[in-house]
Amino acid sequence: MRYIKDIPNQHFKISIYQWNNKYIIKIETGMFEQTYKIEEYEIANVEEIEKSMDIEFLEKVSARFSGMQDDFANTLHRNDVIF
Protein backbone atom coordinates (compact mmCIF):
# COMPACT_ATOMS: atom_id res chain seq x y z
CA MET A 1 0.00 0.00 0.00
CA ARG A 2 1.43 3.35 -1.03
CA TYR A 3 0.77 6.47 1.03
CA ILE A 4 -0.42 9.40 -1.11
CA LYS A 5 -1.28 12.23 1.28
CA ASP A 6 -3.16 13.43 4.34
CA ILE A 7 -6.14 15.72 4.06
CA PRO A 8 -6.06 18.35 6.81
CA ASN A 9 -9.00 18.22 9.19
CA GLN A 10 -9.42 19.47 12.75
CA HIS A 11 -11.50 16.47 13.90
CA PHE A 12 -10.14 13.45 12.04
CA LYS A 13 -6.96 12.06 10.57
CA ILE A 14 -7.78 11.56 6.90
CA SER A 15 -5.23 9.69 4.80
CA ILE A 16 -5.25 8.58 1.19
CA TYR A 17 -3.43 5.47 0.01
CA GLN A 18 -3.15 3.70 -3.31
CA TRP A 19 -3.31 -0.09 -3.52
CA ASN A 20 -4.39 -2.71 -6.01
CA ASN A 21 -5.77 -0.15 -8.52
CA LYS A 22 -7.84 1.53 -5.82
CA TYR A 23 -7.61 4.64 -3.72
CA ILE A 24 -8.19 3.95 -0.05
CA ILE A 25 -9.48 6.77 2.14
CA LYS A 26 -8.86 6.09 5.82
CA ILE A 27 -10.56 8.31 8.39
CA GLU A 28 -9.45 7.87 12.01
CA THR A 29 -10.38 9.21 15.41
CA GLY A 30 -9.36 7.77 18.74
CA MET A 31 -9.59 3.97 18.64
CA PHE A 32 -11.82 3.82 15.56
CA GLU A 33 -11.36 4.11 11.83
CA GLN A 34 -13.52 4.06 8.72
CA THR A 35 -12.17 3.01 5.35
CA TYR A 36 -13.58 3.79 1.94
CA LYS A 37 -12.30 2.45 -1.38
CA ILE A 38 -12.73 3.79 -4.88
CA GLU A 39 -11.39 2.39 -8.14
CA GLU A 40 -8.64 4.52 -9.70
CA TYR A 41 -10.56 4.78 -12.98
CA GLU A 42 -13.59 6.29 -11.20
CA ILE A 43 -11.87 9.62 -10.60
CA ALA A 44 -9.64 11.95 -12.60
CA ASN A 45 -7.24 12.81 -9.76
CA VAL A 46 -6.71 12.71 -6.01
CA GLU A 47 -8.01 16.26 -5.65
CA GLU A 48 -11.49 14.93 -6.41
CA ILE A 49 -11.26 12.75 -3.31
CA GLU A 50 -10.18 15.73 -1.26
CA LYS A 51 -13.12 17.76 -2.61
CA SER A 52 -15.48 14.93 -1.59
CA MET A 53 -14.52 15.27 2.08
CA ASP A 54 -17.16 17.97 2.50
CA ILE A 55 -19.06 19.02 5.61
CA GLU A 56 -22.12 16.86 4.91
CA PHE A 57 -20.05 13.71 4.42
CA LEU A 58 -17.86 14.34 7.47
CA GLU A 59 -20.92 14.97 9.66
CA LYS A 60 -22.17 11.50 8.69
CA VAL A 61 -18.72 10.07 9.38
CA SER A 62 -18.85 11.67 12.82
CA ALA A 63 -22.30 10.19 13.52
CA ARG A 64 -21.05 6.77 12.42
CA PHE A 65 -18.06 7.06 14.78
CA SER A 66 -20.47 7.87 17.64
CA GLY A 67 -22.51 4.79 16.78
CA MET A 68 -19.37 2.66 16.63
CA GLN A 69 -18.32 3.92 20.07
CA ASP A 70 -21.75 3.16 21.53
CA ASP A 71 -21.91 -0.31 19.96
CA PHE A 72 -18.45 -1.24 21.20
CA ALA A 73 -19.02 0.09 24.72
CA ASN A 74 -22.36 -1.72 24.92
CA THR A 75 -20.89 -5.09 23.96
CA LEU A 76 -18.04 -4.67 26.43
CA HIS A 77 -20.51 -3.94 29.23
CA ARG A 78 -22.97 -6.63 28.16
CA ASN A 79 -20.25 -9.27 28.17
CA ASP A 80 -18.68 -8.10 31.46
CA VAL A 81 -15.42 -7.12 29.77
CA ILE A 82 -15.48 -3.71 31.44
CA PHE A 83 -17.52 -2.39 34.35
Rank of each mutant, 00 (worst) to 15 (best):
M1P: 01
R2P: 00
R2W: 00
Y3F: 15
I4H: 02
I4K: 04
I7G: 02
P8H: 05
N9I: 01
H11E: 13
F12G: 04
F12E: 02
K13T: 13
K13F: 09
S15N: 08
S15P: 01
I16M: 07
Y17T: 00
Q18N: 06
W19S: 05
W19E: 09
N21V: 01
K22M: 09
K22L: 08
I24G: 00
I25P: 01
I25T: 08
K26L: 08
E28A: 13
G30W: 10
G30T: 04
F32Y: 15
F32G: 12
T35W: 03
K37N: 14
I38C: 06
Y41F: 12
E42P: 00
E42Q: 14
I43K: 02
I43C: 07
A44W: 06
A44E: 14
A44D: 14
N45Y: 06
V46Y: 04
V46D: 03
E47H: 07
E48G: 08
I49Q: 02
K51Q: 14
S52T: 13
D54T: 07
E56T: 15
L58W: 12
L58E: 06
L58A: 11
S62L: 08
R64P: 01
G67K: 15
D70V: 07
F72Y: 09
R78M: 08
D80K: 13
I82Q: 09
F83S: 08
